[in-house]
Computed example of a mutant assay.
Amino acid sequence: MPTSERADPEKCHRYMQLTEKIYQSLFKDILKGRFLPGQRFLTENEAMQRFGASRTTIRRAFAKLVDNHAILRKQKVGSIVNTKLAASEGKISKIAAILPIEDHFVRSFLSTLCNEAAKRDVITVLEPGSSGQQQNEAVIRLALHGIRDMVVWGIDRTLDLELFFRLRILGVNMVFFDRINPGKIADYVCLDNAGAMRALFEKAKERGIRRVYFVDPTGLDIDSNHERLQCCRKECAAHGIDFSTELPEIFPEHSAIFAVNDPTALMFAECGVPVFSIDGLPESRAKGIISYRQPMDELAKGCFKSLGDQRRLGENWKARQYRFLAQDPFA
């Protein structure tokens, strides 16, 4: 009687490991821009030669790339890198929060985001990163592990926005929070800086402020800081208040400091003039700083709305901005 040949479990496991290794290598190539959207991808023969693998293994790796929206396979054409926005549909089950945990404001937001996720039965994965380059590597790592919903607190301009755009094409839903406005490549959730500044100037008018000094000692090239500077300048012009970014040796009467955020405001808490700021940290309030509270609950809900809208709209998605004001911002 013929005997059936039983599969060798160890051999099968090695084949699966090799397939996954080849898939991840090719997926990284696409994310890092070595193959751009619309370009011809490797042929099976080229991949076999590169990895020294069998055609069966290469086909399995290619099939996984197709399943993850990385490439399209066309008869008589071969494989090309996907250009059409893929859709990650259905219910959100897991999100990644890509942000540094050293910042007090970010920790407060992370806590609120995790609470909102728990209400929705969503798992939160924390991926800390203290530079844009570290965040670039983090999103690749998360995408390779199947994470399809991400909240990003962009550190600086070393973020590779082209990488994030390629992730969007591959069906990764993402929303940028607070610092860096990603433009057309992703949604943006933040404080309504113009509205917050108007509320601060109402407080300044009550105190008879006639000259404002805007301070941002960090000099960081980030959109939230640029917005606050421009909004402060605009409100000064609207109210006939003198504006300057140069601090005097002695503050004149009826002058005030407008700080870009609470950590900056705390540096000037003992300067002898009113200090206005944005964040609403308890330690700032304790020092008498007039600080507009960040609407953490609304911002966290806004992130989930953005991610949900991206799943719902799929290939019809277009980048949106979600801006929020706080209720009782000085309470």
Results as ranks from 00 to 15, higher is better:
Phe304Thr: 03
Val151Phe: 01
Phe109Asn: 01
Arg50Leu: 15
Lys84Trp: 03
Leu170Arg: 09
Arg141Ser: 12
Ile209Met: 10
Leu36Thr: 08
Gly52Asn: 11
Pro2Ile: 08
Arg166Asp: 01
Gln321Leu: 02
Ile222Arg: 04
Phe251Asp: 10
Phe258His: 01
Arg14Pro: 03
Glu89Asp: 12
Gly33Lys: 04
Phe62Asn: 04
Pro252Asn: 09
Gln321Pro: 00
Arg40Ser: 15
Lys84Thr: 12
Phe268Tyr: 15
Pro263Thr: 07
Glu116Thr: 04
Lys184Glu: 12
Met1His: 11
Tyr23Val: 03
Asp149Pro: 00
Ile289His: 03
Gly314Ala: 13
Asn68Arg: 13
Cys114Pro: 00
Asp178Ile: 07
Gln327Glu: 15
Tyr23Glu: 04
Asp309Lys: 14
Glu127Ser: 14
Asn225Met: 09
Glu116Leu: 00
Glu116Phe: 02
Asn68Val: 05
Lys184Ala: 13
Thr43Ile: 07
Tyr23Trp: 10
Gln24Cys: 11
Arg166Ser: 05
Ala138Cys: 04
Gly240Ser: 08
Ile250His: 15
Gln327Trp: 05
Asp29Ser: 08
Leu65Gly: 06
Tyr213Ile: 04
Val125Phe: 05
Ser79Thr: 07
Ile95Arg: 00
Ala196Thr: 03
Pro329Gln: 11
Ile95Glu: 02
Gln39Val: 01
Ile257Glu: 07
Gln135Lys: 10
Glu5Met: 14
Ala199Gly: 05
Tyr15Ala: 14
Cys236Gln: 02
Cys232Gln: 00
